[in-house]
């Protein structure tokens, strides 16, 4: 999915995805704050890592074999533990997902939507790559309607 790059930043083309942007103008303003978290190389393929945001919350970062990078909230909504980054990355019917390590609930990486429980979702953060560095939007996209309901 092609995504218009937010203004004022140079974005390398192939890697960064921010699915949410296509439907969001309400919560992600063009002047969203971006937080540089780590070089792309620090993120092995399909092995998540947590990153701390300036507000003290954490995101789970995942790099797919396609090069896409996703950021979702690191707190497991079922246990309350900060463990989503330790989940197993895979796919369900071709859609990239992560399965939480404690209760094995599965979430879509692009939308945060939980496939095993209704109305549960992880917050999703926009991601972009500036040079070799992964940057994560500090805004959480959590409004249901943004992804067309679930």
């Amino acid at each position: 999915m092609k995504t218009p790059a937010p203004a004022g930043r140079k974005v390398t083309t192939m890697t960064a995805t921010s699915t949410m942007n296509t439907t969001t103008t309400m919560t992600t303003s063009p002047t969203a704050d971006w937080s540089a978290v780590c070089p792309l190389d620090a993120l092995p393929v399909e092995q998540g890592r947590a990153a701390l945001l300036p507000d003290g919350s954490a995101v789970a970062l995942f790099r797919l074999h396609t090069g896409e990078v996703h950021a979702v909230g690191n707190l497991d909504p079922f246990s309350g533990a900060p463990v989503i980054c330790h989940g197993i990355v895979g796919d369900r019917d071709g859609v990239p997902v992560v399965t939480g390590p404690l209760g094995k609930e599965t979430f879509e990486l692009a939308t945060g939507r939980c496939l095993d429980a209704e109305n549960v979702r992880l917050p999703v953060h926009d991601v972009r790559l500036t040079g070799p560095v992964i940057e994560v939007s500090t805004r959480r996209n959590t409004v249901e309607t943004l992804v067309g309901g679930g």
Binding site: P77, P123, R140
Partner: peptide, 8 residues
Amino acid sequence: LGMPQLPA
């Protein structure tokens, strides 16, 4: 169960 309470 539900949305997590994110830290302040």
